[in-house]
């Protein structure tokens, strides 16, 4: 009886530390990545284009870009596409996401970032952060999951607004009225604009 109790206690302790490790890992990962990105943004001797390239290089392993494309389209729409369409959509989506990410990053002007404690929600980890801006604070929530190659961001919520959800309802609206071709056209057009 005592042995059993000890075993159970041992398992509980182990799982507890495993959980804590996961959270720690995510916190460090995000913090290091963004510290690195901010370092590059502050370098004055680099051209804007070089900065952008480097930022994307740093950020790419942390973001689950293809998964974000898939989730934004949603299961029902995704399953209707053939392989070429899927590839086409994914590459366009990622391109758009990257450019909008860079645009947002350019608005950054030395605001303080506060990292809060990560939360474990089912199998995923949510990391809440706050951006202290000139007259208010902006809440940013990074949602990560464990992929085969480590923790990756699959969604960001800015002030409670999820990138995936807003993209998804827009795509859904377009696909309800039009065809996949319309969606591709729109994605291509907004990109060049």
């Amino acid at each position: 009886m005592k042995k059993l109790f000890l075993i159970i206690l041992g398992i509980m302790l182990l799982s507890q530390t495993a959980l804590a490790n996961d959270k720690k890992e995510v916190e460090d990962l995000i913090k290091n990545t963004f510290d690195h990105v901010l370092d590059i943004l502050q370098k004055k001797d680099l051209l804007q284009e070089d900065k952008n390239c480097r930022v994307i290089e740093i950020v790419t392993p942390v973001f689950a870009f293809p998964k974000m494309a898939k989730l934004s389209l949603g299961r029902t729409h995704w399953l209707k596409l053939n392989k070429d369409q899927k590839e086409k959509f994914t590459s366009l989506f990622i391109k758009r996401l990257k450019s909008s990410f860079l645009e947002k990053l350019n608005l950054y002007s030395n605001e303080a970032i506060i990292y809060k404690d990560a939360l474990k929600i089912k199998k995923k980890i949510h990391l809440p952060t706050e951006l202290i801006s000139k007259d208010n604070k902006i809440q940013m929530l990074y949602k990560l999951y464990k992929s085969k190659s480590g923790w990756k961001i699959y969604d960001i919520e800015i002030q409670g607004v999820s990138i995936i959800s807003t993209n998804r309802s827009q795509f859904d609206q377009i696909l309800q009225k039009g065809t996949f071709k319309d969606l591709i056209n729109k994605l291509e057009n907004t990109e060049s604009a």
């Binding site: 959800s165 807003t166 309802s169 827009q170 907004t190």
Partner: peptide, 19 residues
């Protein structure tokens, strides 16, 4: 940034209010 501006505004508003 939007494909359907109305939907983007609508969903952003509702999600933000929920938060």
């Amino acid at each position: 940034d939007s494909l359907d501006f109305y939907i983007l505004l609508r969903d952003s508003y509702e999600q933000n209010r929920k938060m």
